[in-house]
Amino acid sequence: MTSQPPPVRVMHVSKRFEGTHALDDVSLDVGAGEVFGLLGPNGAGKTTLIRTILDIMKPDSGTVEVFGRRFAPEDRNRIGYLPEERGIYQRQTVRDVLEYLGALKGLSPSDARTRAARWLERLELSDTAQKKVESLSKGNQQKIQIAATILASPPIVILDEPLSGLDPVSARLANSVIRDYAAEGHTVILSTHQMAQVETLCTRVFMIARGRRVLYGGLREIKREHATGAIRVVSTARYEACPLIASMEPVSAGGAPAVDVHLKPPATPDDLLQWLAAQRASVERFEKLDTPLEDIFVRAALHAPAEAAG
């Protein structure tokens, strides 16, 4: 039995601009039906990586495969792209713009019209079909662009900051659209700085900094790897007497005085809980702290290796 190749495979790709490594030996796979987070600080190489996947730019070395082979011209119809620096025709009606962009992705005029109506309804914009794009709010224009990207149901979509300009209600709607789209078996590559969105949607992430991979894998595994082991405790115990604690930091948790405790190895949270019980301390809260992805992102970006001279 042979396994299906991943819809997107990047292998040892490097790209230089004027002596700067935009991409340095980058490799990754993106599977079908997953929302894959592409993270990195500004100027890290995310856009260059996306452009090499889209064949807008060729790598200096390495290979990019989509649908198990090198990029072919017909693949333009099978990859939707919402760039970060984006815009939309302003003087035409929403329906005309969607039908045109759908036709450029290979849809017939009638199919494009039907799908445009369906997506406008899904995005709660049915009443805008005959309106000129310029008459819509920035947020609604943004939703039109999301609709244009997935109108032709491309098997792969690349969304670069899809939520920028959206209010929380629209952002929630967009997130549900993205989640449902991936659930239908499509591949979604999501490039964003909004860590909350990554935590909500992504199953795996790739973080790039200075052109190099700094994080790659399942979100859960990455968070586990980067967990600090801290435990937030609200209790009546006197922690100074605890032999298990390496350090602690007083914090305020919902008005109650709390401490974030770091244990000495090989002590475990269970050991600490037993010690608290032995002290007959009243325990109001005992929580193993999760490391926010944002902290992992900042730490990884700050500690990314400097670029090789060249």
Partner: peptide, 14 residues
């Protein structure tokens, strides 16, 4: 280019 539509177009058309 100023509308910033061009990158969307170029991802669909050679």
């Amino acid at each position: 280019r100023n509308n910033r539509v061009i990158e969307v177009l170029i991802s669909s058309v050679d």
